[in-house]
Each structure stands twice: as structure tokens, then as C-alpha cells.
Design a protein around this nucleic acid. Structure first.
Length: 268
DNA sequence: AGGTCGACCTGGCAGC
DNA sequence: TGCTGCCAGGTCGACC
């Protein structure tokens, strides 16, 4: 499901809704999603207050007063929704001492939740590339990484060991904004174009956060609302519709097993 | 070693 | 209506 802008939106909503509150009850309806024993998971949450809420890539990090962390990987269809009605996709219910209820819903059951003492225990984080908004993520960095590979640029943008948080929707949108063909070999992209990509990555992600993310099927924010950025998508899921710039039809191809949407005329 | 592909799971939708 | 096949925002491990 969610990419960086969606997870950032959820993190922001949760800060308002549950930060500072105490977990008074945790009910696991589907232990399949836990990466540890259910009893251990519940024991380490109950009685803890929610401290700092942050994000790394597409994962949510919920700090606890014990110093531990609740890590939530929403994957494709995970949702964290405050004060909603439980449904058939609700996998975990968190109840706070003031009565606030937080539901973890997940249609496809790909999501993963765990409590860790140290973020170093999360193997996924150790292989993750830099955050797109970090100082480390510069045109120079992109250039160096692009030189190392013969893969098409689209596949590199999707690679979380290169940069954290970009998924299929935003990889397509970024390349459209940068007017770059998704099929271009990363190492053949010019310094000028790399500057453009760097700028577009930041612009597109920031705009998406501003519009509270993109809702295709399942994404909802912390209050259960859809994001609005999908109304502004230029190419993703728009096969056959006309390009907003040149009025030619948007094309769809498969790269590394995933759909890529682009304008064959505008993106060179 | 770099890169691709299938598996993981559920459900919605199109086509017959 | 009901079946089949395809598709989906992510990540990991197997394999070439």
C-alpha cells in the first residue's frame, strides 16, 4: 500500500490522535502479522505511553515510554485508523487509557508489526537507502549510485536500497515530471537530467504529502479518509487516457514485474 | 554479484 | 450468477 507520503500522513495523524496516551489494551485478532509471540507483543505494549512517532522509508516507528519501539510495516493494504468501527480486515485493536481506539486493518495480511528494543534489530532499516529529504540525498549521491548499475532508471527509483520510500506510483510520477523515459539506463542519464530527477523526487513527494497521499484502492489516513493526490496523478493507472501535456495516450509497460505508466512522447 | 521473478495473501473487476 | 484469470501501493528469498 502506502509509500512515503501516505506513511508520513498517517504518522502525522497519529501524533495528533495518540501521542502521549497509554496503551491500556491490545487485542490481536490475527497473530499471523506479528513477527514475535503474541504474548510478548502485548506485554511490551500494555501500560506504555506513546512517545515520539516517526517514519523510516515506508515503515512507521512508534516510540514507547519504555524506550522500545513499535514498528509497523503497512506493506500493500495496511491501515491504522483511529476510532473506526472494527471490520473483517481488522487484525489488531489498540485501546488507549482515554478510550481512544486505534485499529490496524489489513486486507491482504502482508503487513508486519513488532516491538523491538533497538532500531538496529530491524534488518530492513540497515539496508535502506537515504531518506529523500535528507542532506545526504543529493544529485551527487544519485549520480554515484546511477553509475553503478545498468538497470532502467524506473527500477532504480523503486529500489529501497538506493532511496527509501519511493514506490510504484511515485516512481512513475517522478519520471513523468522529470520528462525522462522509465526505460533509460540509469548510468546513461546526464548530470543535467540527474539534477532534474533530484528536484522532481522532492517536489512530487512534498506535493503528495500536502494532499495527504494517493488513494488507489485501500489507502486511508489516520482518520479513515482517502488521500487526494490521486486526482493529480499524471500517468499512474492512466493507461489509454491522454497525456495532460501532449494529448497522446499514456502507455503501460512491465518492468521488473511491475506496471510502469508513462508518456512515450514527453518522456525521453 | 547484479538483476529478475515468484511467493506471500485477499479481494475487486472484467470477460465469458 | 458464477466461474476464471488478472491485477494491486511492498518486501524477501530463490534463482539465473
Amino acid at each position: 500500500m502506502p509509500e512515503l507520503p501516505e506513511v508520513e500522513t498517517i504518522a502525522c495523524d497519529l501524533r495528533t490522535a495518540v501521542q502521549g496516551k497509554l496503551f491500556s489494551d491490545v487485542t490481536v485478532h490475527d497473530a499471523f502479522l506479528l513477527r514475535q509471540k503474541e504474548r510478548d507483543f502485548v506485554r511490551r505494549l500494555k501500560g506504555q505511553a506513546v512517545d515520539k512517532i516517526s517514519r523510516r522509508g515506508k515503515a512507521l516507528i512508534i516510540g514507547l515510554s519504555s524506550g522500545e519501539f513499535l514498528i509497523v510495516q503497512l506493506m500493500m493494504t495496511g491501515q491504522l485508523i483511529v476510532n473506526a468501527r472494527r471490520d473483517s480486515h481488522t487484525r489488531i485493536s489498540f485501546v488507549f487509557s482515554d478510550g481512544t481506539v486505534l485499529l490496524y486493518n489489513d486486507q491482504r495480511r502482508f503487513g508486519q508489526l513488532r516491538v523491538v528494543a533497538d532500531l538496529g534489530e530491524v534488518k530492513h532499516f540497515s539496508v535502506l537507502g537515504p531518506e529523500p529529504f535528507s542532506e545526504e540525498f543529493t544529485p551527487g549521491f544519485i549520480s554515484e549510485e546511477f553509475q553503478k548499475t545498468s538497470r532502467p532508471v524506473k527500477n532504480v527509483l523503486l529500489d529501497h536500497t538506493f532511496v527509501a520510500g519511493i514506490g510504484n506510483i511515485y516512481a512513475c510520477e517522478i519520471l513523468f515530471r522529470a520528462r525522462l523515459s522509465p526505460k533509460r539506463q540509469a548510468r546513461r542519464i546526464t548530470p543535467q537530467e540527474i539534477k532534474r530527477i533530484h528536484q522532481c523526487i522532492i517536489e512530487v513527494l512534498k506535493e503528495a504529502i500536502l494532499h495527504r497521499g494517493s488513494s488507489m484502492r485501500n489507502y486511508r489516513d489516520g482518520s479513515g479518509q482517502k488521500g487526494r493526490f490521486n486526482e493529480r496523478l499524471s500517468v499512474y493507472a492512466r493507461e489509454g487516457l491522454l497525456c495532460s501535456v501532449c494529448r497522446r495516450p499514456i502507455e503501460r509497460i512491465t518492468q521488473a514485474g511491475r506496471s510502469t505508466f508513462y508518456c512515450g512522447h514527453c518522456q525521453k
